[in-house]
Simulated assay, not measured.
Amino acid sequence: MATPAVNGFSPQEIARLTARAAIAKSHLSWTELMVKSFMGGFFISLGALVDLVIISGSPGLRESNPALATMIAGFTFPLGFVLITLTNMELVTSNMFVMPFAALQRRITLRDLARNWVVSYVFNLAGCLFTAGFLAWWSDVLDTDVQSSYAVTQSQNRVNVQWSVNFLRGVGCNFFVAMAFFLSTGAIEFVSKVYCIWIPVWAFVIAGYQHSIANYFSVPIGMFYGTNFHVGKFIYQSIIPVTLGNIVGGVLLAALPFWILYGRGEVVNVQTGQPAEEKREDVPRMDSDDDTLRGGASSEQRSRARYDGDRVAHAA
């Protein structure tokens, strides 16, 4: 009896693909990493901008049913994560799960991890500030007093809270981001990937959790219209605790337990239930960034190699 086709991978297979994704990230050139990271910040800000336009333009609904207003506006926020994933850009918060997972397997070094985190964080920030300044404020997207007033209010609500509250909100946020990455990696075609990204990200927006990179759009846009705090308080009260919380959520709540469960044993094929065989090293493997690329490959070839989901799916 033939085994029916399965539109996805087992957790063990997803863990293997996650490690390969980390290796691919470690092989990016400086220019590729910077450009991908800038675009990642730009994309996530687009989702935040659409969310802000909808909720700021619905004052009646916010007053009568704030939960419904948050749910409707938050439905548009995952747009940025979908664009990042399907165009293969870099987002430091998902990398806070991916890179430690591979580091625990000793597939990448701590230097690779630090390089990826620092560069992607800085250029994610730059992409967000570009969107906030040029595509939101100077383009006058929030063109009514009600909308600009709400931009200030939501910005102040992100900063004028206890340090520990923002830290824990960062923890919760990045657990959902890690799940979005893990689940979407397990899906094969785009519709399933979009669904796997959309639901976890939508959930953390509804819960009010804080995303350190999205905040580089959401807080500055309010500051442009005049908030009751300045850059120093933004850094201490929001940037630091939310970033640390995102790291804890990505590493301790996602990478570590998933490594314990799925990163140390055999890879199991989802269709057969049997251990998945590794590709032979003597076969050209330009569809993978695994560290078992054929020995004759040059460093340039290794840095240019890319993870190809279709071929991995076919092999599995």
Rank of each mutant, 00 (worst) to 15 (best):
V35H: 04
K36I: 02
K36Q: 03
K36C: 03
K36E: 00
K36A: 06
S37G: 04
S37P: 00
G40C: 04
G40D: 00
G40M: 02
G41N: 02
G41L: 03
G41A: 05
F42D: 00
F42Y: 11
F42G: 01
F43G: 01
F43Y: 12
F43N: 02
F43K: 03
F43I: 05
I44S: 01
I44Y: 05
S45K: 10
S45R: 09
S45V: 11
L46Y: 14
L46D: 03
L46C: 13
L46K: 11
G47H: 07
G47F: 12
A48S: 11
A48H: 03
L49E: 07
L49N: 11
L49W: 13
V50G: 11
D51A: 13
D51F: 15
D51K: 15
D51M: 15
L52Q: 14
L52Y: 15
I54K: 07
I54D: 01
I54L: 11
I55K: 06
S56P: 10
G57M: 03
G57H: 10
S58L: 12
S58P: 13
P59Q: 00
G60C: 05
G60Q: 10
L61C: 08
R62Q: 06
R62N: 12
R62K: 13
R62P: 09
E63A: 15
E63H: 15
S64Y: 15
S64T: 15
N65D: 13
N65Y: 14
N65G: 11
P66D: 01
P66L: 04
P66A: 05
P66E: 01
A67W: 13
L68V: 14
A69G: 07
M71Q: 09
I72P: 13
A73C: 07
A73D: 00
G74I: 07
G74S: 04
F75I: 08
F75K: 03
F75L: 11
F75G: 13
T76Q: 03
F77M: 02
P78H: 06
P78C: 05
P78W: 07
P78Y: 07
L79D: 01
L79Q: 02
G80I: 09
G80P: 04
G80T: 09
G80V: 08
F81G: 06
L83G: 07
L83Q: 08
L83N: 04
I84W: 09
I84P: 02
I84T: 10
T85M: 14
T85Y: 15
L86G: 08
L86F: 08
T87E: 03
N88V: 11
N88M: 10
M89A: 12
M89R: 10
E90N: 12
E90W: 13
E90D: 06
L91Q: 01
V92I: 10
V92M: 11
S94I: 12
N95Y: 08
N95H: 05
N95G: 05
N95A: 05
M96C: 06
F97K: 01
V98Y: 10
V98G: 04
V98E: 02
V98S: 05
M99Q: 04
M99T: 03
M99C: 04
P100T: 11
P100Y: 14
F101E: 00
F101L: 02
A102V: 05
A102M: 03
A103P: 00
A103E: 00
A103I: 09
L104P: 00
Q105E: 01
Q105G: 12
Q105T: 04
R106L: 03
R106C: 04
R107T: 05
R107L: 08
